[in-house]
Design a protein around this nucleic acid. Structure first.
Lengths: 98, 98
DNA sequence: TAGTCATATCGATAACCGTCGATATGGATT
DNA sequence: AATCCATATCGACGGTTATCGATATGACTA
């Protein structure tokens, strides 16, 4: 999941529930249960979204006993946003091609 | 479509064909036909994707006779990427909340 | 005006995705 | 070992979306 994929990245962001989860664990570690408590969706749904975010490398996981704590990978966000900007928003970047 | 919506933005980016279109008209005006010629999808499909990109404010349109020329709105890209970074990737931005 | 070309829209189809309840897994507790 | 709790996975269902062929729209041309 270190590989950077602008499509995968965009797909991961393209859901309101996921963006809410990202916002929740933006700067702190949260267990799945804590995330569920703050949203109006079930635990399986949250687990599913966390899996999507994991596949995109957008969250870090820390297992501890029977708990799993998730936290947004802000560095990854910065890198991926930068890639998008480079790919689509920069004038002087025409030499590299996909 | 001046309103900024991170979900709409991400959804617009969350498709390979659309990202290809964006790349094609990243720094030049292209007619729909020219875009179709460079992709392996039909004209209605390209028109559909252009509509999605238009709704997200990600392309500018210039009508000229019977042609419509599209070009990626790079400023919009910059703004939207910046918003994402601010929302999710910045450490020192916890006062504002959605 | 008839015809052609470029684009948009419509309706249908298939694939994808978000959500749920049910269940499996596996650590902690008694 | 039996139970409980936290999380992941499974299967199903419904809604969304990408794609297509057919058609409408509307501009230019002869």
């Amino acid at each position: 999941m270190t590989r950077s994929d602008p499509i995968l990245f965009a797909k991961a962001l393209a859901d309101e529930t996921r963006q809410r989860i990202m916002k929740l664990c933006c700067c702190r570690w949260l267990s799945v249960t804590e995330i569920v408590e703050q949203l109006s969706v079930t635990q399986p749904t949250v687990s599913h979204h966390l899996a999507v975010l994991r596949e995109a490398g957008l969250v870090n996981v820390r297992e501890e006993g029977k708990h799993s704590f998730y936290r947004l990978n802000q560095d990854r966000m910065t890198v991926c946003c930068g890639e998008l900007r480079t790919k689509f928003a920069s004038e002087d970047d025409k030499t590299e091609t996909s």
